[in-house]
Amino acid sequence: MKKGKLIGLVGILAAGALALSACGSSSKSAAKNKFRTLDEIKSAGTINIGVFSDKHPFGYVDENGEYQGYDIYFGNRLAEDLGVKINYVSTEAANRVEYLETGKVDIILANFTVTPERAEAVDFALPYMNVGLGVISSDKDPVTSLDNWKAEDEMIVISGTTAETYMTKNYPDIKLQKYDTYANAKNALLNGSGKAWVNDNTEVIAFAKSNPGYTVGIDNLGAKDTIAPAVTKGNTTLLEWINTEIENLGKENFFHKDYEETLTDTYGSEYADTLVIEGGKVQ
C-alpha cells in the first residue's frame, strides 16, 4: 500500500473512533437525564409519580394497600387535570434524584425540600409547603439543644435528607446513625438505638403526637425551607404545566383543602396557614 493511501486510511479510522467516542459520551449524558415530555405523557395516558410509602401523613400505604396522604391528594389532582391515569412509584429519600434522572418517574412528590444543591440536579416547580427541621427524643431525657451533645451519643438521620446535610455541615462532631427509610429511623428511636432523631419538623411533630413518651424538644432547627414538586432537569414542558397548575389550584384554595383532608387529624387546624403555600406564593 502506498504511503499516501496508508495515511488516509489511518485518518479515516481515527475520525471514526472519535465519532464513536462522541456518540458514546452523548448517550451517557442522555441516559442520565431521561424523561418524557408533557405530550409524551399525555400520549401514553399514564404519569409516573415518585412518592413515599412510609411517611404518614404525607405519603403512605394504608391497610388496604392504597396510597394516601398530602402528597397523594395533590398527585391525584395532577393526574385528573392532565387527563391521565396515575402510577405511584415508592421511593426513598436517597433515590429521588436518581429516579428522575433515569426516567423511572416523571415527577417527584416525596416531601422534596428545595435546596441549591438539589436544584443543580433537578428542576423544581413552585412550592406548595413550608418546612423546617425538628429534633425529637424521649420524654425521660429530652434534647432541647445540640450545643451540649455528649460525644458517645448518636443522632438518627435518614440518608439523602436535608437533615443529614444540615447536621454534617453544622454539627460535624455529632455521630450520625443513618437509615434509608422512615420506618427504620422511627424503629431506631423507639428501640433507643439513638439519642434523638432529627428530621422535617412536620414529621417529628406527627410522631410525637402519635407516640406517647416522646417530645419535640427543638421544633425549628436552622432556616426554614420549602417543599416543591421536582422533574428531570431540562423537562421544561412538564415543569411549565405544573407551575401553571399550582397557580390555578391556589385560586381555589386547593392546598388548604388538601391540608384539611389529610393533615388536620395529625396537626390540628392551627398549623394550616403555617405549613401551606397556596399558588406557589411564599409569604
Rank of each mutant, 00 (worst) to 15 (best):
residue 5 K to T: 15
residue 7 I to D: 09
residue 8 G to A: 13
residue 11 G to S: 12
residue 12 I to T: 05
residue 14 A to M: 03
residue 15 A to L: 14
residue 15 A to M: 14
residue 16 G to D: 09
residue 22 A to C: 11
residue 22 A to D: 09
residue 25 S to K: 13
residue 26 S to P: 00
residue 33 N to C: 05
residue 35 F to D: 07
residue 35 F to W: 11
residue 39 D to G: 07
residue 39 D to N: 15
residue 41 I to C: 07
residue 44 A to L: 12
residue 45 G to T: 05
residue 46 T to K: 12
residue 47 I to V: 12
residue 49 I to E: 03
residue 54 D to T: 10
residue 54 D to G: 04
residue 56 H to I: 10
residue 61 V to D: 14
residue 67 Y to R: 10
residue 71 D to H: 08
residue 80 E to V: 00
residue 81 D to G: 04
residue 85 K to N: 14
residue 87 N to L: 04
residue 91 T to A: 14
residue 91 T to E: 15
residue 93 A to P: 03
residue 93 A to T: 04
residue 93 A to R: 09
residue 99 Y to D: 14
residue 102 T to C: 06
residue 103 G to I: 13
residue 110 A to R: 08
residue 111 N to K: 13
residue 112 F to L: 15
residue 113 T to C: 05
residue 113 T to R: 04
residue 116 P to I: 06
residue 121 A to W: 14
residue 121 A to K: 15
residue 123 D to H: 09
residue 123 D to T: 13
residue 127 P to C: 13
residue 128 Y to N: 12
residue 130 N to I: 02
residue 131 V to M: 11
residue 135 V to K: 07
residue 136 I to K: 02
residue 137 S to Q: 02
residue 137 S to A: 08
residue 138 S to Q: 01
residue 138 S to H: 03
residue 139 D to N: 15
residue 144 T to N: 15
residue 144 T to Q: 10
residue 146 L to D: 05
residue 149 W to R: 07
residue 153 D to T: 02
residue 155 M to Y: 06
residue 156 I to A: 02
residue 159 S to T: 14
residue 164 E to G: 08
residue 165 T to D: 15
residue 179 Y to Q: 04
residue 189 L to F: 02
residue 189 L to D: 07
residue 190 L to G: 06
residue 191 N to E: 10
residue 192 G to Y: 10
residue 193 S to P: 00
residue 194 G to E: 08
residue 194 G to I: 07
residue 195 K to D: 01
residue 200 D to T: 04
residue 203 E to S: 14
residue 206 A to V: 01
residue 210 S to D: 11
residue 212 P to K: 06
residue 213 G to Q: 07
residue 214 Y to E: 06
residue 221 L to I: 11
residue 223 A to L: 05
residue 224 K to W: 04
residue 225 D to A: 15
residue 231 V to C: 11
residue 231 V to L: 06
residue 232 T to P: 12
residue 234 G to V: 10
residue 235 N to R: 13
residue 244 T to I: 03
residue 245 E to Q: 03
residue 248 N to S: 10
residue 249 L to S: 01
residue 253 N to W: 01
residue 253 N to Q: 12
residue 256 H to Q: 00
residue 266 T to Y: 02
residue 267 Y to C: 02
residue 267 Y to D: 00
residue 271 Y to Q: 02
residue 273 D to N: 11
residue 277 I to A: 07
residue 279 G to W: 02
residue 281 K to Q: 13
residue 282 V to M: 05
